[in-house]
């Protein structure tokens, strides 16, 4: 087995014999981006497509998301896949609240993003009505390639996020707009 192993690129910095100097923010971003633990909140067919993404063919583990976290306490990424009924809205919000900062949200598929074809009295017209969303994946359901693309977009966000972002007044204002303290 002489397969070349690809490792994450080092962030920009100063390198010399025996030392490497860079910003702490970037090191942390690098570490976080390559070890995202997603919490799959799957309610319907998008969940099935997500299972394919996790399984060996598409292998989400290559992106550091080996471990699905079924506890919100140990999750970094809330991955909402499927139709969210209005009655499910408060449950979803509670799961989001139980996650520790920093946390990201990925909305997978038309239903989670906008209600999709279910433009009706019982369905939440997009999860961004109850929680803030970082990345939306279109599709009904999206192909695993799209899910991987979405996760890589999340990785980019994570990698370049300022360590101070979660304490910023803008972020607090965003949460307040959702009624989250």
């Amino acid at each position: 087995m002489t397969k070349e192993i690809k490792i994450a690129e080092a962030p920009p910095g100063f390198e010399g014999q025996g030392f490497f100097a860079t910003k702490l923010e970037q090191v942390i971003g690098l570490a976080r981006a390559n070890s995202i633990w997603p919490l799959p909140f799957a309610t319907s067919c998008c969940g099935i497509e997500f299972m394919a993404t996790m399984a060996s063919n598409y292998d989400l583990a290559r992106f550091g998301s080996e471990r699905m976290s079924f506890s919100p306490r140990q999750a970094d990424l809330l991955l909402v896949a499927g139709t969210i009924a209005k009655k499910m809205g408060p449950v979803l919000k509670q799961v989001y609240l139980q996650m520790a900062e920093p946390r990201w949200v990925l909305s997978m598929g038309a239903c989670a993003s906008s209600g999709g074809i279910f433009d009706t009295y019982s369905v939440l017209q997009g999860i961004d009505k109850v929680i803030p969303v970082d990345v939306y994946i279109p599709g009904c359901p999206p192909r695993p390639e799209q899910v991987i693309d979405g996760l890589m977009k999340i990785q980019e966000l994570v990698k370049h996020e300022s360590l101070r972002r979660r304490n910023s007044p803008q972020y607090k204002a965003l949460l307040t707009s959702y009624g989250i303290e």
Partner: peptide, 26 residues
């Protein structure tokens, strides 16, 4: 039993539009 408790109408009566009347994004 099935709908949210806060709902203040009876959705399958034909006097209401089937679409979500509260939506703003479409």
């Amino acid at each position: 039993i099935l709908n949210v408790d806060e709902m203040d109408y009876f959705p399958l009566r034909k006097e209401y539009p089937l679409e979500d009347a509260t939506r703003t994004d479409k």
